[in-house]
Design a protein around this nucleic acid. Structure first.
Lengths: 232, 232, 232, 232
DNA sequence: TTGTAACCGAGACGGTACGTCGCGTCTTGCT
DNA sequence: AGCAAGACGCGACGTACCGTCTCGGTTACAA
């Protein structure tokens, strides 16, 4: 009978405290050193843990940082501020504030870069970070629908497509603002952004087959100086 | 005597061919290996160049990759397809196609990650990559205004703010779709996205205290409290 | 097996069996891997024993291997073949055959190397291995003396000195032949070696101040064939 | 034409000083730490050299120590003291003194132990250490023959066999005395040993087919004479 | 034509971090 | 209380790149 028990758990169990210490040390090292100068040996030292212990739990730097960064997003909540617009603003602002923290900045882009070459890592990121965020979008929409602020989408596929788009727009735009443009995503900016987004969503139905306005008569004069004439 | 002579350029000049070979080798290495496994020694070997030659021209991996990736965006053009919507679609699609290439995926996010800790690198990225893209947004708006599709914004500051927002939304969303969600930014998606974006922009004026344009349910008051005062 | 019969006391029922299993596993590992690649974890696994159990009984790799190798020499016996020469040949051959086994080769030299820096280990080796061998020399001499083949040495110190020398010559030469010269110590070689050794011993008395033979002219016949006659 | 030159020597040449520094550091580390606690990282540090430099020149600890120890035997010389006995004593004493040094003790046995499992290492030891010593035996015999102290052996195979035996006896006995018995191989001992050895050799002819005397009656007088009064 | 100065390839150098392995110790739960 | 299982802190391993530094040899311009 013990053969099963044995295979399940024999020997000294892994220290739960070590996991927490390592993740905290990773975040601290990200703040101080950033991704590229973060070394696993240093993280182990900070955590008061042997390097081997670290490698027993994570396959490498990328996996470790994904988990460390994922923790930052745990605090994301969907506030109930009474309206879709207000709720959205609140969530975006929370998201922006997390991204403003150096440990998120340093780590997040780097693991995304790594993930472009690593299917498993991409899945890990999705499971640990992305899906957790995306859930907020779905919840927010459901709430808005129950409030009557948004119509209920009958086609589930279209609903998913739109949710994905919203999510990419929100997360992508905030990330780009923060990390590429390197401008603060403060309250005023968030208000501006969410207004544009919501306006677009309220009117934006399913994509239509003929997107080209097909301007009669051709170009209005303003285009004149444009270089594009040769183009398509 | 030579020793005192200020010869503007004495000695053997740098090989122009080497630069091109190195950048091409860098892109090839990015495709094959990705950022993290790309090594400067390997790039030098591929380019048929000594490591020293490489270090004479670039300070390190990041700078080299910025230049190598920047070249990819040279082909970005603002097409004149007759309408703002069509032009926007065209640009976004071009951008998406560049981002679909592995050398862009691997390199771009990584240098952005590096740049979070390196002011000089951030400036280099802005100068080489970002500003070149942002110019398209400005050109596109100017063309749309001259066509009469968009009103002329009287406040230059507000105009700049909106241009930045558009840029962050476009670039950020496409990047997020491609790299994080790892879904193809194909024509259908681009059409969907640009329609939402344009709709938002056509109605989105300067930020207002009450951003809810119409609420079918009729709860006007809720918006008020939801806004800034309550905070969180 | 045995643990089932007596469930009352869960003491150390395997203690005796474990020792044998561990030593056998050690020898097996020596054969397969040699000293430097032998690991205690592997030995424990082979013996079906926990590493802890192993460490309770031996302080480390060296001590364990000393005991494992010592067992090989248990089979050494002083045969009675009727003459000193024949007895010596027999013992040397036995010794050579043990040294030809890979577990002896791998282990013995290594622990001797370790012992150069470790007094306790040196003593352990002496007690477990060396003295057991040296006893054969003493027994052999006693037997030869009782046969009348060797005179009885009146000075006990000199007797000890000579016994030590014989031992070093026998063991050292066989070891060197086997491990350094890496040539087989087969029957023919043993015969050659023991004849030289015995001849030397029969004539070799206490050390003298003037070792120069000083006979440039030629060899006195007596010395030349002092012992050869006996054989044929 | 440089293509040939290039392949022969291109790039920065290896530092000759580094080799010497590394070997000296290795010997120093052997003295202080002994074989098992000697680490290549430590050797590199002592030599003021990077670990990589060390690994570029030697495949591992064993190879390095072989070279380091081989240097110790460079000082071995065949002295001309006028007689075979005196020459032999001189060489053996030199050998004993080298073996008395801790760097030789620590290293030599260990690499021999390693060599039992490593053909290449065995060859390296033979080339660097053993053959150099064996040459002295051959030189010594030639000199003794020219002096008339030893007969010229007509059969070259038998000559080689005997030289090998002498070598194994000399080296093996001294090593065993020093490292296993852990007794000093001082002048008195060397005199005792060499006298026994030389006596054995002077009378020891080629091995004979029937070595077992098998005379149950035992032997008498002739043997007895050899002992006390020292024929030579 | 000849200097001379900066270039070029090759590759060794002192370092740093990697990810792995073995050591000997320390929990666990089972018997 | 001893056992197997196995996680733990420690520290060396051998490898891979880093960015720098010789090397011998090659341009290209100036004297």
């Amino acid at each position: 009978m013990q053969s099963r028990t044995r295979s399940v758990r024999a020997g000294r169990p892994r220290s739960a405290a070590a996991d927490a210490a390592i993740l905290a040390a990773t975040r601290a090292a990200l703040v101080e050193l950033g991704w590229s100068k973060l070394t696993l040996g240093d993280v182990a030292t900070r955590a008061g843990v042997a390097k081997t212990t670290l490698y027993r739990r994570w396959a490498g730097k990328s996996e470790l940082v994904v988990d460390a960064v994922a923790g930052l997003f745990d605090e994301l909540r969907l506030p109930d501020r009474g309206s879709l617009a207000a709720d959205l603003e609140g969530v975006v602002l929370q998201f922006a504030r997390i991204l403003a923290r150096p440990e998120a900045q340093s780590g997040l882009m780097a693991v995304i870069a790594e993930a472009t070459r690593d299917e498993a890592l991409r899945n890990r990121i999705r499971a640990s970070i992305v899906d957790r965020q995306k859930r907020l979008v779905l919840e927010g929409r459901a709430r808005a629908q129950s409030r009557g602020e948004l119509p209920r989408e009958p086609d589930p596929e279209e609903a998913a497509r739109t949710a994905d788009l919203i999510f990419d727009m929100v997360a992508g735009t905030v990330v780009h603002r923060t990390l590429v443009s390197a401008e603060p995503a403060d309250e005023a900016w968030v208000r501006h952004f969410t207004r544009v987004l919501l306006t677009g969503l309220r009117s934006g139905g399913p994509p239509e087959p003929s997107p080209l306005p097909r301007n009669p008569g051709g170009r209005e004069g303003g285009t004149a100086r444009a270089e594009g004439d040769s183009g398509d």
